[in-house]
Amino acid sequence: MNLSLSALAALLMVSPALAGDLEEMRFRHLWISYGIIWLLVSAFTYATWRRAKANAEELAHLKAKMAELEASK
């Protein structure tokens, strides 16, 4: 994570050398932007979905345990 961020920051620093034609840069930045948007939104959605799934399983498990404990009394 940190490594990829450092790589990105380094890229930003040297990018005047990389920047060629303006029109090309506009297209490149547009694609990168929407790529970032997709990456962040889908990562967040996935993380939320995974937590929701784990929670549902855990809740069912705990409730079953609870019922078992009550029954044994």
Partner: peptide, 22 residues
């Protein structure tokens, strides 16, 4: 996304409470 997230957070609280009760 907000509703999903809110539910996840509330569920985690419920899990914590259940664990303590158990």
């Amino acid at each position: 996304l907000f509703i999903e997230r809110y539910r996840v957070i509330r569920d985690e609280e419920a899990i914590g409470a259940l664990r303590r009760r158990l």
